[in-house]
Amino acid sequence: METILEILGVIFISIGAAFLLLGSIGILRMPDVYSRLQAGTKASTLGTLGMLLGIGFFEPAWFLKIFIIMIFVILSNPISSHSIARGSCRSGIKPKLKETVNAYRDAMESCEESIKKDDK
């Protein structure tokens, strides 16, 4: 039983470490703020969750505390990156990717609209 838990723990910690590594590479390699944020947030959230889950499998007595920490990470990480992205949009940072990418253009337009709505 213990060995199964340890194997599960090792698997989850490796997944978490891999995602954290990919996220940090993404932060280094991505061209602008928004894509860096995306790399940082998504990868680091998943990486942290994997790490925590792995530690939880290693030490089952800590699982409740680790669950609370996981909820905290799930809540706080996306919200903080959302407000960073919103702040950089409001201070006028444009994405470096091509203007022809429709999703990006739509997102920037909606951001500008929200700025106008807030300024009223």
């Binding site: 609370i68 809540l75 959302h82 919103r86």
Partner: peptide, 18 residues
């Protein structure tokens, strides 16, 4: 200062007790 977005507000409310 500009109002924080609704996501931040709801998240703040949820995180505050934690």
């Amino acid at each position: 200062a500009p109002q924080a977005s609704r996501i931040v507000q709801v998240g703040g409310k949820l995180l505050f007790p934690l």
